[in-house]
Amino acid sequence: MYYEYLTIGIILFILGVLGIVLNRSNLIIMLMSIELMLLAISVLFLINSVAINNLIGQIFTIMILTIAAAESAIGLAILVAYYRVRGTIAVRSLNLLRG
C-alpha cells in the first residue's frame, strides 16, 4: 500500500525536475518547481518514516520545511532585486555567464 504513495512522491519530484528543466520563461515557476521538489521529498520521507516506524523521517521533514521556507524567502528576494535591475524575470535572459 505504501508502494503507490512512494510512486506519487516520485512522480511529483519528477514533475518538479521537469518544471525546472523545461521552463524557459519564468523564474517564479522555477521557484515553485523547487518548492514542489522539496515537498515531494518531504512526502517521501514521511511515507518512509511511517512505513519503517522511524521518527527520524518526520524530524527531517520539519527541517526541510524550515529550509524550504528560508530558501523561498531568499529566492523571492533575489528575484525582486533581479527584476529591479533587468526589468524582466525570464530565465532565458539569465545567461550573462557562459563558458
Binding site: 525536475v17 525546472i20 522555477m30 532565458r92 539569465l94 545567461n95 563558458g99
Partner: peptide, 18 residues
C-alpha cells in the same frame, strides 16, 4: 565543445546536474 555545455542557461545547468 566542452565549454559549450556551459551555456549560461540555468535550466541546462539543472538538467546536467540532475
Amino acid at each position: 565543445v566542452i565549454s559549450n555545455f556551459q551555456s549560461g542557461m540555468v535550466f541546462n545547468y539543472a538538467l546536467i546536474m540532475i
